[in-house]
């Protein structure tokens, strides 16, 4: 009995220790980036490094004022916002249809959506670059957002599918018997209930676009997004610019993941099916 107790206590220590170690592994590198971003440019290029931040904003200021950064930020926001809107507007109706109806071709559509996961989607940028020049979408936020939407749309479909499936059909049916049309029942009963989840999947779409590098670098020339700007200037940009840029790239993603944390697991649980 006491052996068992020691065994269990030892197990708890082991668990706790491993968890702490893993937290350090995840958070440590982010801290180092943070350290670099809040140090003066001379400290960033200097050696050896200090392990505590000096809260010097010169590096970040240098980055923000650097030629092309402000517009790159603006482009990233535009593209990510467009991606977010497109993937929800296109994906949510499909998710609703999958959750509520049995119809011929349903499995075909699901296969098409799931198939997108077996393809390296950023490669789509190659043929689209040619197509865009023909239709005048080259080097535009919308053109890039369309590619990012192929990345985000499958998630939007599967996530909204799971959200709608979580709302009992009876709630809608009850609304129908109480005088609602299909559209009214959707607006008054389903929409309020799925709104938080829809918001989470919209944020997720935003992050997918915000972080994407390859397609962004292929499809933009003058109107670079932040990732494309940072990638194509890797060879020439000074260290403080790189690290401050990395920090600005990471920060919104951290906030967004925090906002959607509740939905992350539910979303992926269904995406398995």
């Amino acid at each position: 009995m006491s052996d068992n107790a020691t065994f269990r206590r030892r197990g708890r220590w082991l668990t706790g220790g491993s968890v702490l170690l893993l937290c350090a592994w995840v958070l440590g590198p982010i801290y180092l980036l943070f350290l670099n971003s809040f140090s003066s440019p001379s400290a960033v290029t200097g050696f050896p490094k200090h392990w505590l931040p000096s809260f010097n904003l010169d590096s970040l200021q240098f980055f923000i004022e650097f030629q092309g950064v402000a517009s790159a930020l603006w482009n990233s926001i535009q593209v990510a916002t467009l991606t977010m809107v497109l993937s929800i507007v296109l994906g949510a109706p499909a998710g609703y249809a999958l959750s509520r109806f049995e119809f011929r071709g349903k499995s075909l559509f699901r296969i098409m959506v799931l198939m997108t996961r077996a393809f390296p989607l950023p490669l789509l940028a190659l043929p689209l670059a040619v197509m865009y020049i023909r239709v005048g979408l080259d080097d535009t936020p919308l053109g890039l957002a369309l590619v990012h939407t192929t990345l985000a749309l499958p998630f939007a479909v599967l996530i909204t599918f799971s959200l709608f499936s979580g709302i009992p059909v009876e709630l809608e049916e009850a609304a129908w018997t109480m005088g609602c049309t299909r559209a009214q029942a959707f607006r008054k009963v389903v929409l309020p209930l799925v709104m938080p989840g829809i918001t989470a999947s919209a944020i997720f779409a935003f992050v997918i676009s915000w972080n994407e590098v390859f397609a962004a670098s292929v499809l933009t020339v003058q109107h670079r997004t932040l990732t494309a700007f940072l990638l194509t200037s890797l060879d020439v940009s000074p260290l403080p610019l790189k690290f401050a840029g990395g920090f600005v790239l990471v920060l919104p993603a951290l906030i967004f993941i925090f906002l959607v944390r509740k939905y992350l697991f539910a979303m992926w649980g269904i995406a398995n099916r």
Binding site: P168, T177, C180
Partner: peptide
């Protein structure tokens, strides 16, 4: 359903 003059009580209640 809305034009049939009925009301319904569901097995799982369907309380919004």
């Amino acid at each position: 359903p809305r034009q049939r003059g009925i009301a319904m009580v569901f097995q799982n209640y369907a309380v919004f």
